[in-house]
Design a protein around this nucleic acid. Structure first.
Length: 274
DNA sequence: GTAGGATGCTAAC
DNA sequence: TTAGCCTCCTACG
């Protein structure tokens, strides 16, 4: 689930249900009990996302900083909440709704300064308004990308360079621009990077709206290509992600996979030669 | 029932 | 580069 679009969506969903109201906070699993006791009865004043980091603002008390990691899950429901299972790290509840957090890499109560330190070590986020505006984030990322001998596939996953992109968006955006994932940053042209950045802004915004990742252009949908309808098993329509050894939707060639920076990379060698 | 993998990241070597 | 963290789901006996 969790790439940047998921986290921005979670920020909005938390605020919609709990924003401006006092919440009940518990940690059935126990690992967040002390902080939950402090939060209990406090007002959630704001919510915010930067890359894959979620911040729930509780005024002078500080922020709940949540990072889902690979396994973390968030589940919203309508009141009354069912009895929590023992894996629930944090449950927040108000008279109308509740939310359960399970398996996060991080769930901690932090102060303003600690929150700022997290922002400082993250790169620009295509989903943050000031980064998207006038391509300012894209330009900032280009400063680093254009000087790097690292592959573009690895750069896209580096949260210091660009925040919020995960394994699905990296594979898909490279396919959409016909870029060989093994090209290095220093070898990319500025126009290619600008196209990647502006595409990510659009794709990820749509990801927030739909709460899933769809990357297939209208002219390549099964209907447009005269092929039977399909469902990718992670819930969105994509070109290459987790489609190893299947035929490319565009050229029919075989999608390849390889380990890169401890993650599975997927690409179409014939469509991505640029 | 069990093993293994997954849209992530960090610390330690 | 690797191990470790945390949970859920699928594939396989």
């Amino acid at each position: 689930m969790p790439e940047g679009h998921t986290i921005h969506r979670l920020a909005a969903d938390h605020f919609e249900r709990f924003g401006g109201r006092p919440v009940r906070a518990t940690s059935p699993q126990g690992k967040f009990s002390d902080s939950a006791a402090l939060l209990d009865g406090q007002v959630m004043e704001s919510t915010e996302a930067h890359g894959k980091h979620l911040f729930l603002g509780f005024g002078p008390l500080g922020w709940v900083h949540i990072h889902l990691g690979l396994f973390g899950k968030v589940n919203f429901g309508a009141a009354p909440p069912p009895p929590p299972t023992d894996t629930v790290r944090l449950r927040l509840a108000c008279p109308t709704a509740y939310v359960d957090l399970r398996g996060p890499t991080a769930c901690e109560l932090i102060a303003d300064g600690e929150k700022q330190a997290i922002h400082d070590r993250l790169g620009p986020d295509p989903l943050r308004a000031d980064d998207a505006a006038c391509n300012s984030g894209g330009e900032r990322a280009w400063d680093r990308v254009s000087r790097s001998r690292t592959t573009v596939a690895a750069l896209l996953m580096d949260q210091k360079i660009i925040a919020g992109v995960g394994n699905v968006y990296r594979a898909e955006v490279l396919f959409r621009h016909g870029i060989d994932p093994y090209r290095t940053g220093i070898d990319l042209r500025r126009a290619e990077w600008t196209a990647i950045w502006t595409d990510l802004v659009e794709l990820m915004r749509e990801g927030v709206r739909n709460n899933r990742i769809d990357t297939v252009r209208p002219e390549h949908t099964p209907e447009a290509m005269g092929r039977p309808p399909r469902v990718d098993d992670h819930g969105g329509e994509v070109y290459v992600y987790r489609r190893a050894q299947l035929p490319c939707h565009v050229c029919g060639g075989e999608i390849r996979t390889a380990a890169l920076a401890a993650r599975n990379l997927f690409w179409c060698p014939s469509c991505q030669q640029g």
